[in-house]
Design a binder for these strands. Structure first.
Ligand SMILES: [Mn+2]
Ligand SMILES: [Mn+2]
Ligand SMILES: [Zn+2]
Ligand SMILES: [Zn+2]
Lengths: 129, 129
DNA sequence: CTTGCAAATGATAACAGTTATCGTTAAGGT
DNA sequence: ACCTTAACGATAACTGTTATCATTTGCAAG
């Protein structure tokens, strides 16, 4: 049986904040504010459970820890190749459809399409000159 | 100064084999066949150097070690969510162009577009029923 | 209410993948 | 031949994640 615990509720609530793609550590530090005794293991466990229930999505970058977000309408991500920051990009649904309109893809059992844009974020461009 | 060593030449040659997206460990085991004294550290170092020279590309999956390939014409990847296997998918260039034709993307300093398809590969579908 | 049970937790050990360190090797220029 | 130094091999250190286990917690039967 799966229980909706206070820990999971808090983690999901943090994840629901807009325009944020926190790591496990960031979720942990935020969760500690309301649940001072929470463990990192609990964050790993609950984020995994939320993913199984399709309430959360895992985002992997080229380096560093995985990031997570509340599952929402399909969208793309811009990833900074320097600091790993993630930014939502809302591309036209028609673009996704045109990708799916491909014989090879339809033969594979494709469940999800991930579109990622790589580059240097504004902060890193200004910092490193 | 950057030297073209025998180790790097061998690693690049292995990477050049078609339709393969090896991990560092797989590259290491292959390289050992011709260079029995090679170290894993050398594979990590050289794959990194090849990436800097844009001769190799890193591919990260949802789990497991990174995979690599010789840099070639832009294409998409199908990734099995169970075994992590990678398969090349050649999508229409027009799809990529239509994604790039987006105000938000053009404002970001986008350098690369990564398109990944997630699902269960044929092997895993047949194995797990 | 107690009590019993199983799910979930917190703490922490173990693991996997990667990066850093360091003494040694060897390529290439003089 | 000798010198310089990039690159090497071995391995320690580090980071992110998963596994383990004793303890706690929420629920339900008695
Ligand atoms: Mn997002
Ligand atoms: Mn490929
Ligand atoms: Zn950045
Ligand atoms: Zn598979």
């Amino acid at each position: 049986m799966v229980r909706m615990t206070e820990q999971r509720r808090v983690i999901y609530e943090i994840l629901s904040r807009e325009a944020w793609h926190p790591t496990v550590d960031e979720l942990f530090l935020e969760a500690k504010k309301s649940l001072p005794r929470i463990s990192q293991a609990t964050v790993y466990r609950n984020i995994e459970a939320l993913i199984q229930d399709d309430l959360a999505t895992k985002i992997v970058g080229l380096n560093g820890p995985a990031r997570f977000e509340k599952t929402k309408a399909p969208h793309a991500h811009f990833e900074c190749r320097s600091c790993g920051a993630i930014k939502d990009i809302f591309i036209d649904t028609e673009c996704i459809n045109s990708i799916m309109d491909n014989k090879e893809i339809q033969q594979c059992a494709t469940e999800t399409i991930v579109v990622k844009l790589l580059g240097l974020c504004q902060v890193c461009r200004e910092t490193n000159i």
